[in-house]
C-alpha cells in the first residue's frame, strides 16, 4: 500500500517535471530565446539581495521551486522507506532463524 503510494508520488513528480521541461522546450521552439533572471551573471553569482517593490519574472520560478521541494521530500522519505523495508526484512529473517532453532530444540 505504502509502496504503491510512494510510486504514485514519484510518478507524479516525473510527470510534473516533464510538463515543466516540455513547456520550456516548446517556448524555445516558438523562437523565444532562453530567458534568465535579471541582472548580470556576476551580480547573480556573487550576492543575494532582497527584492524591493514588485517583481517581474521572465521564467516562472514557482513551478521550479515546487518541483525542487517536492524532490527533496520524495528522496528523503523514499530513503526512510527503504531503511524501514530493509529492517523488516532483517526482522523476518531473525524470526525464521529463531523458529527453526526452536523447532530443532524441541525435537531433540
Amino acid at each position: 500500500m505504502l509502496r504503491r503510494f510512494a510510486l504514485w508520488v514519484a510518478l507524479a513528480w516525473f510527470c510534473a517535471a516533464g510538463a515543466v521541461v516540455t513547456a520550456d522546450m516548446a517556448s524555445a521552439q516558438d523562437g523565444q530565446a532562453p530567458t534568465t533572471a535579471s541582472g548580470t551573471a556576476d551580480d547573480r553569482a556573487a550576492s543575494f539581495q532582497a527584492v524591493s517593490g514588485g517583481t517581474k519574472e521572465d521564467v516562472a520560478g514557482g513551478p521550479l521551486m515546487l518541483l525542487a521541494y517536492a524532490a527533496v521530500w520524495i528522496i528523503v522519505f523514499g530513503y526512510v522507506y527503504r531503511i524501514n523495508r530493509l529492517q523488516r526484512g532483517v526482522e523476518a529473517n531473525l524470526e525464521r532463524l529463531e523458529s527453526s532453532i526452536a523447532r530443532q530444540g524441541s525435537s531433540v
Partner: peptide, 19 residues
C-alpha cells in the same frame, strides 16, 4: 525575503546548500 534578481526560485538555495 524574496530575492531581487532571481525571485522565488532562490528559495531552493536554503535546501540546496545544506544538502
Amino acid at each position: 525575503p524574496v530575492e531581487q534578481q532571481m525571485g522565488i526560485v532562490q528559495k531552493i538555495f536554503y535546501f540546496h546548500v545544506p544538502s
